[in-house]
Design a protein around this nucleic acid. Structure first.
Lengths: 233, 233
DNA sequence: TGACTGTAATTGGTTAACCAGATTTAGTAT
DNA sequence: ATACTAAATCTGGTTAACCAATTACAGTCA
């Protein structure tokens, strides 16, 4: 499941159609939080689609916290009123596939914050893990090898050290997509990697010394190149 | 599907076990990006679980961009090396359920950024949608009614106006969970709602006038109470 | 030897039957 | 009428058979 859950457009279309019909049904029947939806079988018959299709649509709405399925009982409207429900479903239906620029922009936002938080909250174990990742990165770069994986792990170690599980999850979600795009557009050059050693070390030092503002600053410098690239794409 | 996809602990445990076994298998066979995994049937037999279990585990790894299933062909290791694969799977296995504090912290981070970006990029249509949401919010509050839904929609309208689809998605993901927790802990008081009108209006004005720094500032003021609450929990 | 071809096995995805538990309903005794 | 019970029904979830497309391979012909 990608960020947008479905991959193939055809499947996505029929799923969005079902979601819209579920929304219409909730509106028509004036269902409120806690109310029960018709059974999956009834919905599949009513909408003229398979039960699998209905299940997937329900699961997507469950992912966004709008519905709640309870085994052997039914599917219920979550603790969200009909107004918010309509607004959120509209947003969900119009969600576009995340573009590279928005991914990078979001990554930078998260990285600056996690660096700062890591400087405030990192445990000794966090620090040890970060140092491991940093050393692995250095070794690869100094040997002239590709170190994109070690680079990634260093940043994920910071995210974990931030002590914020939500940001950690978000970093995990966007990181692979970033990597893929990096390789597609050949963003990472080798000369960037060498200066990367110093930059990583600076970030590490700031977090080690528990200097949040400095950590953020060093992270910002680290992303300077990326920033420019992102806005020139 | 919640942020952590699975809900019941038992199911989550068996799924994580399978994920760990898939990781071990990738390591043992030295599978590299593009290599094919054994078929779902073989894995289910090898691991002594059902094919459904294997499918769910694969889908979770696909969600995080580590595997890629191709119909009638097989499941393949994504464009990520074995080192990053191991690191990410370790993180995924240890991902904890997002706590309220981390949700609020992340929301504030996203809201400050989207407010700023919205001031830079909002279209006239974005502005119209925001005004709609703002008016609905005002009316409810002035009538003494609960306006948590309209409050939510105003913030989501800003997220959309930010022009960043990734942040928009993230806002959609965390918003319902925040709402649920708000109601559980009774965060929102009525007196907060009335001052909320002015604060919302200030944010709207700043975005309308395309003043990014001011928009961020007004959003920060809006979250001041929340901030304090978050750190006193 | 090598390119080609048709068939059989294998693949992830889909569907329909099945399951256990919750819910409703009908019946009965009070 | 009411409280209670038991059977029938309905629920989301699970499983095993099925599907179409891909792949591997044996056989054939040049």
């Amino acid at each position: 499941m990608k960020l947008d859950i479905v991959t193939r457009t055809e499947t996505a279309d029929v799923q969005n159609t079902i979601i819209a019909k579920i929304r219409d049904l909730i509106n028509a029947k004036n269902l409120e939080p806690g109310d029960k939806l018709p059974s999956e079988r009834m919905l599949s018959e009513k909408f003229g689609v398979t039960r699998s299709n209905v299940r997937e649509a329900i699961q997507k709405l469950e992912f966004y916290g709008l519905l709640k399925s309870i085994p052997q009982s039914g599917t219920f409207v979550a603790n969200i009123g009909v107004i918010a429900m309509n607004g959120m479903i509209e947003d969900i239906l119009r969600l576009e596939e995340p573009d590279f620029k928005s991914l990078v922009e979001t990554r930078i936002l998260l990285e600056l914050k996690t660096a700062r938080l890591a400087a405030l909250r990192r445990t000794d174990e966090d620090l040890y893990k970060m140092k491991e990742a940093l050393d692995a990165f250095k070794e690869k770069v100094l040997n002239g090898e590709d170190a994109v994986q070690e680079d990634l792990l260093f940043h994920l170690a910071i995210a974990k050290a931030s002590g914020n599980s939500t940001m950690n999850t978000f970093m995990l979600i966007i990181t692979p997509e970033i990597i893929t795009n990096f390789e597609k557009y050949h963003v990472c050059d080798k000369d960037l990697a060498e200066s990367g050693i110093i930059e990583h070390q600076n970030i590490f030092n700031a977090i080690r010394d528990q200097k949040p503002q400095l950590a953020k600053q060093k992270m910002k410098e680290h992303f300077k190149m990326l920033y420019q690239y992102c806005y020139n794409i």
